[in-house]
């Protein structure tokens, strides 16, 4: 009787201890992440002013802005998306529609998942060997290609997943009225999966807008305004990297402000992307 009671007591005690540890773990994790975001807001906000968006990156010790870096990031992100998205959507379409049960799809899915989490610096090295070395110089277009390669696996994954969710009855209805397969895919499957595919593209934008490593030795950096795609171009992440590691206070402040801009962009895009799919789930 007493042993049973003490066993019960010890089990309850053990449970209380472990559950407390779990709560502490959650507390530590959330507090740690809150600390990072808090520091980012605190240090970044103090440097936000109009000059950040209207002036070029300054020489050491001077005041200035991040205009050319912001512009470079936007340009390379847009080109990366324009190049990467069609390839990703088409590949995802093959995997979910034409080749749903083929051997090729299984292999591509496996390889795509590996590409999805492959170190981005490796992609940078690849594009360096592929484009920068043959061309003989760093260029914005090489940076954009590196970003496009990062876009593809994200879009492939979401496109395939979303097309797989489209009920087969819809496709059968399309086929039954005599529409060929590609018309069924275009007018039925794509339309049904549209918000999911757009979510994938938004997530891809969120991913590449903060990528630094693949740009380091493809687009390099540029202290001045440049819209030449065949020349080195500044980007927000690379500028942050350079400025943060510098000994100049103005540069460090700009790095914090740039970091805040990137984080808000990425968080905003992710929340928007999630709200798109969230609405669909509710419906």
């Amino acid at each position: 009787m007493s042993t049973a009671a003490s066993l019960h007591q010890s089990r309850k005690r053990k449970n209380a201890v472990m559950m407390t540890l779990c709560v502490i773990a959650a507390g530590i994790g959330l507090a740690w992440l809150a600390l990072i975001l808090g520091a980012l807001l605190y240090k970044g906000l103090s440097g936000v002013n109009l000059a950040v968006f209207t002036e070029m990156t300054p020489p050491p010790g001077d005041a200035g802005g991040l205009l050319n870096a912001i512009y470079g990031s936007i340009v390379m992100t847009i080109i990366g998306i324009i190049v990467g998205t069609p390839i990703g959507v088409l590949a995802g379409t093959y995997m979910a529609e034409y080749g749903r049960f083929s051997k090729l799809t299984t292999v591509v899915r496996f390889i795509n998942d590996i590409l999805l989490s492959a170190p981005s610096i490796i992609i940078g090295l690849f594009v360096y060997e592929l484009m920068v070395r043959p061309m003989g110089h760093f260029s914005a277009i090489a940076g954009a290609v590196a970003l496009a390669i990062l876009v593809i696996p994200v879009v492939v994954r979401t496109t395939e997943d979303m097309l797989n969710l489209v009920p087969n009855a819809l496709r059968e209805a399309g086929t039954a009225i005599g529409a060929p397969r590609w018309v069924v895919i275009r007018s039925v499957a794509y339309r049904a999966a549209l918000s999911g595919i757009v979510t994938g593209i938004l997530l891809a934008i969120a991913r590449i807008s903060g990528e630094t490593a693949p740009l380091l030795f493809t687009a390099l950096n540029n202290q001045f305004w440049s819209s030449n795609l065949n020349a080195p171009m500044a980007s927000l992440p690379v500028t942050i990297f350079q400025f943060a590691l510098s000994p100049y206070e103005e540069w460090q402040q700009l790095a914090w402000t740039g970091a805040l801009i990137i984080t808000l962009t990425v968080l905003g895009l992710s929340i928007f992307a999630r709200s798109l799919t969230g609405r669909r789930e509710d419906r």
């Binding site: 990072i36 984080t263 990425v266």
Partner: peptide
């Protein structure tokens, strides 16, 4: 989804 450079600058 927060870019790694943010963690880096905080760490430094």
């Amino acid at each position: 989804g927060i870019p790694s450079i943010i963690y880096g600058i905080w760490g430094l």
